[in-house]
């Protein structure tokens, strides 16, 4: 565990908690893409099936458990408890167009052709594009509430911090995982436009509003 990895995990955890708290306290999931949340739940479940056969540490187990539970709770809020506030007209991204290619790619390019490794690889590929429905929703409505922006910033920073972690591990431990690195770069690049708007607008107290 190095500082980048720890900060990445904390940023990831913060993002998930901010989102749940936003939905819970405002009793509304307006502006949040249920499609992205479904993709994240698939990502966590596919990747953390290793909870069943690999023990790493208490930290590892607890974090994986929290990510799966929190993402399922978010889906429950969006599709059941606060269903009336869900903006499904704008949330029209077709997630099968992300799931199918990620699955095909995982079958073709993986570390080992075994069910758990393929699911792990699938989760890495799917995670890299899972935010697209959310970014699509923001671009359709042309704006995002500041709390939604904070959520997106924390979520985007997490993989960026993981990239620094991988650079560090390459030099310090001679370890690198090309699948995770390439997917992590794609994932982080997808947020760049948002990061720019976040830094130039939201941090200066303005609302995140896209140019018309």
């Amino acid at each position: 565990m190095n500082i980048f990895r720890l900060l990445g995990d904390l940023s990831h955890l913060l993002a998930i908690i901010v989102l749940l708290l936003k939905i819970w306290t405002t009793r509304s999931c307006a502006g949040i893409s249920g499609k992205s949340q479904i993709l994240f739940a698939i990502v966590y479940i596919a990747r953390y099936l290793d909870l069943l056969n690999t023990y790493i540490s208490a930290y590892n187990t607890i974090m994986k458990f929290v990510f799966i539970s929190a993402s399922l709770a978010t889906i429950f809020f969006m599709y059941v408890k606060f269903k009336a506030t869900y903006d499904h007209n704008h949330d029209s991204f077709r997630i099968e167009f992300l799931i199918a290619p990620a699955l095909v790619l995982a079958l073709l390019i993986n570390h080992e052709f075994s069910p758990l490794e393929i699911l792990w690889t699938f989760s890495i590929y799917l995670e890299s594009v899972a935010i697209l429905p959310q970014l699509f929703l923001v671009s359709k409505t042309g704006e995002a509430e500041s709390i939604t922006s904070h959520y997106l910033f924390a979520l985007g920073s997490y993989r960026g911090l993981y990239l620094l972690n991988w650079v560090y591990r390459y030099y310090a431990e001679d370890h690198y995982d090309l699948i995770a690195i390439v997917a992590g770069v794609v994932q982080t690049v997808l947020y760049c436009d948002f990061f720019y708007l976040y830094i130039t607008k939201v941090l200066k107290g303005k609302k995140l509003q896209l140019p018309a």
Binding site: R5, D9, H12, D50, T54, I56, S57, N60, M63, K64, F67, H111, E112, E117, W120, Y162, N165, H175, D177, A180
Partner: peptide, 10 residues
């Protein structure tokens, strides 16, 4: 060790 590294990260 490679696989463990993969399962260690979140």
């Amino acid at each position: 060790a490679e696989a463990n590294n993969r399962h260690d990260e979140l």
